[in-house]
């Protein structure tokens, strides 16, 4: 015999709000600044740690491995390999979406970090880990993140 579950008593509800606009933050954005400055000249710029040699893109002026401030700017290749990817096939509620988008994290040649972005590809099933891809910048770059259109398979 199945047990009949008694519904839980609904007690009153009261509310409160954490208004995020009551907070402010200052963020050090050396990495993004360098990245968009590079876009202007159609370059991908990062920072290299003078101690351990790690290259970060976006390149903040801090090496977390060595715990030091770093300043050396280096240019890395626009080409790299897809380190991992995902395809958004549904929205947050689980409903299928019509325009399937592919997000990738790409390890650009010459860098030790991964750059995240959108991959332009006709069929998401063709993507694989290790697939060569390159950064696509728009024709006229003006030094914003929007200069980077997407990644494209090579």
């Amino acid at each position: 015999m199945e047990k009949v579950k008694k519904p839980l008593k609904e007690t009153r509800q009261v509310s409160d709000i954490l208004d995020m606009s009551s907070l402010k933050w200052r963020i050090e954005a050396d990495g993004l600044e360098l990245l968009v400055q590079g876009f202007k000249e159609k370059k991908i710029l990062g920072r290299k740690c003078h101690k351990c040699g790690s290259v970060y893109v976006p390149g903040l002026s801090f090496c977390r491995k060595c715990f030091i401030t770093i300043e050396d700017v280096v240019e890395v290749s626009k080409k790299g390999k897809i380190a991992c990817y995902t395809a958004s096939l549904a929205d947050v509620r689980g409903n299928p979406v019509e325009n399937i988008t592919v997000s990738v994290q790409v390890n650009l040649d010459g860098s030790d970090s991964w750059l995240m972005g959108h991959l332009e590809i006709d069929d998401w099933k063709k993507v694989y880990v290790g697939m060569p891809a390159e950064v696509v910048l728009r024709e006229e770059t003006n030094g914003t993140l929007a200069d980077m259109v997407c990644f494209r398979p090579i």
Partner: peptide, 23 residues
């Protein structure tokens, strides 16, 4: 020492909480 680029971040979102008062 080099100058660092500092940006101000502002978030116009709210966290909404609904609390049960209990029995």
């Amino acid at each position: 020492m080099a100058e660092h680029k500092i940006v101000n971040s502002f978030v116009g979102l709210q966290f909404i909480y609904n609390y049960r008062v209990g029995e």
